[in-house]
Design a protein around this nucleic acid. Structure first.
Lengths: 264, 264
DNA sequence: AATTTATTATGTTAATTTGACACAATAATA
DNA sequence: TATTATTGTGTCAAATTAACATAATAAATT
């Protein structure tokens, strides 16, 4: 129980110093093996999965809070992060299975039985603002905290059961990622510094969820004049080795400001 | 003072029944004389202008609240409305000139001197979610309420002094309008049912803030296969009269779903 | 009634972009 | 040395674009 008491103490300070009724949830995108992944947490009380989230301190900018939450979960700062939607449906908590909702409420009552303020704080209706992050999956080392069993990258093709409306939040993030594609640094943020043209193409295919023609994709990308070609990469495969590329960050940033203008 | 008391009573019920620390602000776009306009309110206490805004009832979906606010101000329902950003900077209230902030606080204290709960409620830090609306300016009949002197359409080329960070909110709305242009029903929602090709072109020019070539614009628009041509319109001017067009709504909606895909 | 004026509808053309496919180059394997 | 899979580059017809040209026309002017 000591561990629980410590945890309770920690949470009390954190919660009562935050804005009530408001939270932040992060959809953290990574890219590996030509697939898009999202970083999710699995909770102790019911094994359900959730987005890494948190609260806004009373004297903290909301965007800063999002960066802090992200840092707490991935250890990374200076990540690309962008707000995409705020979810304010009255019944958004009710989209969860009743079973796990009850379990969590019991857990909370047990944990805070002598702290009605916290119980009250947590039982409120919450409105949450969604941010999406674009990270180089190899640079992350996510770790679970005391409320969660594990913290794992899940393919967007097989998202496990989530709490509340987190599934919906993920879908909206994906949709916004597609709509804003020409204004987001997906290439620079999701790929390692050096990458092949195939990596870049498969990334676009994963986001747009459609196949693109190889040679035409290469032509379009090179004409943007933001890629730098490096030495070839010997893959070990029985075929011609591909060149490596990286972004000229200045040119890329300039291009993003007015929109890449690609249409597929 | 009776009027003020009634107003205070009305507000008390409204405020204490709403979620604390959260508000909604609407950037209502209209289009007239080939220019974009925004509907703004001018306040009694300091003559500053603000976006029409409101609060979320405790049992109300946030999107519903936005529709309600809009209805209260314009009398219109079934308007195109879309959330675009949530503003959560710690000092967003501080962006206003200190002078008018003090004036408003004095006004509130006078109005609610026996209602500390309301004073407390209103003095909180607020986070606001911005929605933009696209309306046919001719269908609206905006009226000020008891807190405001007037309610007027202002050209985006000359926005008057606003309270708090409302100027910033307007800029962000315009930016999002541009980025999402290919996914928004700007033509259908901002124009009257029947319009000329010039109307449509000037609308795009107002949003994109650049000139477009007339004959090429016409060709691109017609090829989308969403416009219906009607009889000609005799303008009274000494020149050839233009055709009128309207949207085939079904086709237009279908097109919007996957994005119009126009690039200028 | 003929002429002028401003604006619209439509046409033309060269340059550019696109989609679809072809083919040679090449790193490892058989 | 031949085979294999994948890459870099080329080709080419079709589509699209930007820029400009021309004809149509509603009202005003003469």
């Amino acid at each position: 129980m000591t561990q629980n008491s410590n945890a309770a103490l920690f949470l009390e300070k954190k919660l009562l110093g935050s804005l009530p009724g408001l939270s932040i949830d992060c959809v953290i995108f990574g890219y590996k093996n030509h697939e898009l992944f999202i970083l999710l947490l699995q909770w102790k009380h019911d094994n359900m999965w959730s987005l890494p989230g948190g609260f806004i301190h009373k004297d903290e900018d909301m965007d800063k809070a999002a960066y802090r939450v992200l840092k707490e979960r991935t250890g990374l700062d200076s990540i690309f992060l962008s707000q995409f939607h705020t979810f304010g449906n009255r019944d958004r908590i009710g989209k969860e299975h009743e079973n796990s909702l009850k379990k969590r409420q019991l857990l909370l009552k047990e944990l805070y039985k002598n702290q009605p303020k916290i119980i009250e704080w947590l039982n409120k209706r919450f409105i949450t603002t969604g941010y999406f992050a674009l990270v180089d999956i190899n640079q992350t080392n996510p770790k679970p905290d005391f409320m969660t069993i594990q913290c794992a990258w899940q393919s967007i093709k097989s998202i496990p059961s989530t709490i509340m409306d987190h599934r919906e939040i993920i879908e909206k993030a994906l949709q916004q990622l597609r709509i804003q594609l020409n204004y987001l640094p997906v290439g620079l943020s999701l790929l390692p510094t050096k990458f092949t043209m195939q990596d870049l193409q498969k990334l676009y295919e994963a986001i747009l969820q459609k196949k693109l023609e190889r040679s035409n994709f290469q032509r379009k990308m090179l004409k943007l004049d933001v890629l730098v070609r490096h030495e070839k990469q010997m893959t070990g495969a029985a075929n011609k080795a591909p060149y490596l590329y990286s972004f000229n960050q200045e040119k890329y940033d300039l291009l993003l400001k007015k929109g890449i203008g690609l249409s597929f």
